[in-house]
Design a protein around this nucleic acid. Structure first.
Length: 198
DNA sequence: TCTTAGATGCGCT
DNA sequence: GCGCATCTAAGAA
C-alpha cells in the first residue's frame, strides 16, 4: 500500500498524466481529512512552449529555470504549486528525472470525503466545488506553502490506483493556454460529471 | 444554458 | 508594464 506513487515516477509525463486518472488525493487539515478522486489532468513537457519552464527562442525552445518554477526542475514526486491570475493556486505533480522539467496539472477532482469542510472553504453550489484547477486548490486549502512538498507524505498525498482502461479515458487539447494549443495532452475520465469542461 | 468582461497580484522581462 | 495552465457575476435567450 505504501508508495504506489513511486512506481509512476519512472514513466514519461504523458503516461503519468493518464495513470493519475482515478488516483486519490488525501489532504489532512486540523478540521479533518479531505479526499478526492482525480478525474482530469494535463501534461506539461520539457520541450513544450506552454510549460512554465520553457521559453521560446528563435528556431526552437530552451529551458528557463526561475524561482517560481524551481520545483519542476527538482526530483519527481513533489508538488509544483504556483499562483496565477491574482487569485488562484494550481497543483501539479512533478515528473521526469532531477534536472529535467515536467509536470502534470491536476485539473479536476470528484469529492470523496470532507465535503462540508470543502464547502466551508468555498461557498458555492456543491457542483462547482472541485471541477477546475483553481477551485480544487481552494476547496483543499492548497497554497504556496505546499510548493515542493513530497506528495507521498501527509499532509497532502497522491495515492494512485489501478490504471483505467483506455476506453474510459478521453484525450483532448489543453485548456486556457495560448501556446502549443494543438497538442493533445489533456486527459479526463469519460462521462465523469466533475470534469471542468468537455 | 450560454457567452462575455472584469477582477486580481505576482513573477518575469 | 505585461501576461497569465482561472473564476465569477451579470446579462441575453
Amino acid at each position: 500500500m505504501e508508495n504506489r506513487l513511486e512506481e509512476l515516477l519512472h514513466l514519461p509525463t504523458l503516461e503519468v498524466a493518464r495513470r493519475l486518472l482515478g488516483a486519490e488525493i488525501v489532504r489532512d487539515l486540523p478540521e479533518g481529512r479531505l479526499r478526492g478522486r482525480i478525474v482530469e489532468t494535463e501534461g506539461y513537457l520539457h520541450n513544450d512552449p506552454a510549460c512554465h519552464a520553457v521559453r521560446e527562442v528563435p528556431g526552437g525552445v530552451c529551458h528557463r529555470h526561475t524561482r517560481r518554477n524551481d520545483s519542476m526542475f527538482g526530483p519527481p514526486g513533489r508538488a509544483y504549486v504556483y499562483f496565477t491570475y491574482g487569485n488562484h493556486y494550481m497543483l501539479n505533480l512533478v515528473t521526469e528525472p532531477d534536472g529535467i522539467p515536467g509536470a502534470v496539472l491536476i485539473r479536476a477532482l470528484e469529492p470523496l470525503e470532507g465535503v462540508e469542510i470543502m464547502l466551508a472553504h468555498r461557498q458555492v453550489d456543491p457542483r462547482n466545488l472541485t471541477n477546475g484547477p483553481g477551485k480544487l486548490t481552494q476547496a483543499f486549502a492548497i497554497g504556496k506553502d505546499l510548493d515542493g512538498h513530497d506528495l507521498s507524505q501527509p499532509p497532502l498525498q497522491i495515492i494512485p490506483g489501478d490504471p483505467l482502461p483506455d476506453a474510459e479515458i478521453v484525450t483532448t487539447t489543453r485548456i486556457g493556454i495560448t501556446r502549443a494549443v494543438d497538442k493533445p495532452w489533456r486527459f479526463y475520465i469519460k462521462g465523469n460529471p466533475w470534469v471542468s469542461r468537455k
